[in-house]
Computed example of a mutant assay.
Amino acid sequence: MEFLETKRSIEEMMQKDYKTFVTALISIEKDINNQEALDMMYQKFMNIDEMHLLNDEFDETIEVVSV
């Protein structure tokens, strides 16, 4: 699967069921399978504007590349 096809698939997943998409990413990244814990983490993610799924260092890298 090439990049653009993968990106489109991910975007479709996000649009179809955002909560499941986010909790699946958290589950994979943190190796958590407890649905109750994942639901709590999703709610915290949704309630805190400053919380990001991706590491903040990506923003720093983007700034360096954009200069």
Rank of each mutant, 00 (worst) to 15 (best):
M46N: 11
S27G: 15
I28P: 01
H52K: 08
V67F: 13
I32V: 14
F3E: 08
M46D: 14
I28K: 13
L38W: 01
Q43W: 10
L4G: 08
D59E: 05
E11T: 06
D31G: 01
Y18R: 05
D49T: 07
V22Y: 05
A24P: 01
S27I: 02
M14C: 15
Q43S: 10
M46T: 06
K44Q: 14
T6F: 12
A24Q: 13
T23E: 09
E63D: 04
N34R: 11
E5A: 11
L38G: 06
L25Q: 01
E63T: 04
I62L: 12
T6I: 09
L4H: 07
M51E: 14
E50L: 01
E60V: 02
E36R: 10
S66H: 05
V64F: 02
E11K: 05
L38K: 04
K19C: 04
K44V: 08
L53G: 08
E60H: 03
E29Y: 06
S66G: 07
L54V: 08
E63I: 02
L38C: 09
S9W: 10
V65E: 07
E60I: 00
Y18G: 03
S66E: 10
E36S: 15
E2P: 06
E11L: 12
Y18K: 03
D59Q: 01
D31K: 04
F21R: 02
A37E: 15
E50K: 06
F21K: 01
E12C: 00
M1W: 10
E2S: 09
Q15H: 11
K19S: 13
D49E: 15
K16R: 15
K16M: 08
F58T: 02
I32A: 00
H52M: 08
E57G: 00
E60A: 04
F58E: 05
D17N: 15
L53N: 07
D49V: 06
K16N: 14
M46Q: 15
I10V: 14
